[in-house]
Amino acid sequence: MNGSTRVRDLRLVPLALLIWGAALLCVFVPQISWWLVGAAGIGGVVALALMRRRTDGVRPQGGLAAVILLGVAAVAMTAGFAVPQRDAATELSGRVIEVVGSGSTCRRRGQARSVHRSRSRCRSASESTRRAGSISGL
């Protein structure tokens, strides 16, 4: 493996680092998500416009910058849309668990389903979907 192959393989490291960094920033400081969407989105569009405008016949530069900026905008937008759900979960203090199940939950001798069982020992699917509770020890 020569030196140019190694450098070429590391081209996307800045992409991964910056997008992960933006995601962490938006998770820990959700108020800046939409500001980051605007700044990175405008920056990405400007980078694409500058690449397209180039007419001197030379291969345009800046494609990685455009991809990074638009990727950061996408991650920030995802975090921005998740803010209302995060706020709702914060209000619950992490203490509510909802269990939704389907099918029969009866087991007999290690088998998932048994043909020869009494109905009184088994819960139906409708009973499983109605179960909800809270954990008081958290």
Results as ranks from 00 to 15, higher is better:
T55F: 07
P84G: 08
V96D: 04
L69G: 05
T90M: 15
S102E: 10
A88V: 10
D56L: 00
A74R: 02
Q61Y: 13
P84K: 04
A82E: 15
A88T: 11
L64Q: 12
V67R: 08
V75F: 05
E91H: 15
R59T: 10
T78M: 14
S104I: 04
V75K: 03
V99A: 10
L92G: 04
S104W: 01
V58L: 15
A73T: 02
A82F: 08
L92E: 15
F81N: 07
T78C: 13
G110P: 04
G62H: 04
A79K: 08
G57H: 05
R59Y: 10
A65H: 07
G103K: 03
A76N: 05
G62C: 01
G63C: 05
R107L: 08
P84D: 09
A73G: 06
V72Y: 02
L92S: 14
R54Q: 14
A65R: 11
A79C: 15
S104C: 13
I68W: 00
L92N: 08
G57V: 06
S102L: 07
A73Y: 01
T78V: 13
P60T: 01
V99P: 02
P84L: 05
T105V: 11
S104F: 00
T55E: 12
C106Y: 09
A82T: 08
R59I: 11
G110V: 10
V100P: 03
T90Y: 13
L64M: 12
A74Y: 09
G101L: 10
R54W: 00
L92Y: 07
A65I: 11
A89K: 09
A89E: 14
R107P: 05
T105S: 13
R108W: 10
R86V: 12
G110F: 01
A89R: 14
A79S: 14
Q61W: 14
L69T: 04
P60A: 02
R109F: 12
L69H: 00
R54H: 07
R53D: 01
G110R: 06
A74L: 12
V83N: 02
D56F: 03
D87N: 13
G62V: 03
D87C: 02
V72R: 04
L70Q: 06
L64C: 06
T105D: 11
V67I: 13
Q61F: 14
A66E: 01
I68C: 06
R86K: 09
F81A: 13
G71M: 03
G71K: 08
T55G: 07
